[in-house]
């Protein structure tokens, strides 16, 4: 019977895992950026109750929040290339990297969660603030830009950070859905090759743990910076 945990294998494997952390972070960051842009539009459609778009946004957000990300990844990987193939006549599934579809899936998912964060933050600003801004002659856009948005950012940060860490953790599914060789993919590949799995899982868990802790400290720092001087005003 081989050893339960092979320390020397772990020492060999850990640097190899650290090498692919940038890819995992790249997937997370790009999907977060894609999701962020989409989320702004979704949130605006819902906040300003733009007809038709509002209803579409409601259904979209409900679907994205109501189904597991794993299924969304599967569906995106199957349907997106086929849809693009149908529209443009080019079989992009063969040319483009599967990374694009994975990022699209994560981005579409993150958009739903981030749009709710946005909405909560904007609704979290006291409505008196908007009235005050309009009463001193600001336009609606000015009011949003200088009064609402700047206050909403502080409320939104914890939600964003939460969504980001969820996205980071969900990125473990990219290998299973599309064979991306990110952190989890490398762990599995080394596992298949060496027939030792536990060390890889422990290493990946340690890396995710460290990233999440780092994110949490970063969020604390940003919130502290943004709240500076706030108590003085009150």
């Amino acid at each position: 019977m081989s050893r339960f945990f092979d320390w020397s294998h772990f020492q060999w494997l850990f640097p190899r895992l650290l090498e692919v952390v940038p890819l995992t972070l790249f997937i997370t960051l790009t999907s977060f950026a894609v999701g962020f842009l989409l989320a702004v539009f979704i949130a605006l459609a819902r906040l300003y109750r733009i007809p038709v778009l509002n209803q579409i946004a409601v259904v979209y957000v409900s679907f994205m929040r109501g189904t597991p990300i794993l299924i969304q990844l599967f569906i995106c990987n199957l349907a997106l290339p086929a849809v693009i193939w149908g529209i443009t006549g080019v079989n992009v599934g063969r040319i483009w990297s599967p990374l694009i579809f994975v990022i699209a899936a994560y981005g579409l998912n993150a958009a739903a969660f981030l749009s709710e964060d946005f909405r909560a933050a904007v609704s979290g600003v006291d409505s008196g603030q908007q009235e005050a801004a309009l009463s001193i002659g600001m336009t609606r856009f000015q009011c949003f830009r200088y009064v609402i948005a700047s206050q909403a950012v502080r409320i939104a940060i914890p939600g964003f950070s939460n969504s980001f860490s969820n996205l980071l953790k969900d990125s473990t599914l990219a290998f299973a859905a599309a064979g991306i060789m990110d952190l989890m993919g490398t762990v599995q590949a080394i596992g298949y090759a060496k027939y030792r799995y536990l060390e890889g899982y422990v290493g990946a868990a340690a890396i995710f743990f460290a990233l999440c802790i780092f994110l949490e400290f970063g969020t604390h720092f940003i919130i502290r910076r943004l709240s500076k001087g706030l108590s003085a005003v009150k």
Partner: peptide, 25 residues
Amino acid sequence: VIITRSIPILLQMLLMYFVIKGFYD
């Protein structure tokens, strides 16, 4: 709480599988 919330569920499931398998062995 910190540990369970910061490790992805898939990894926790796989780790748990190996821990239980270790007990079995």
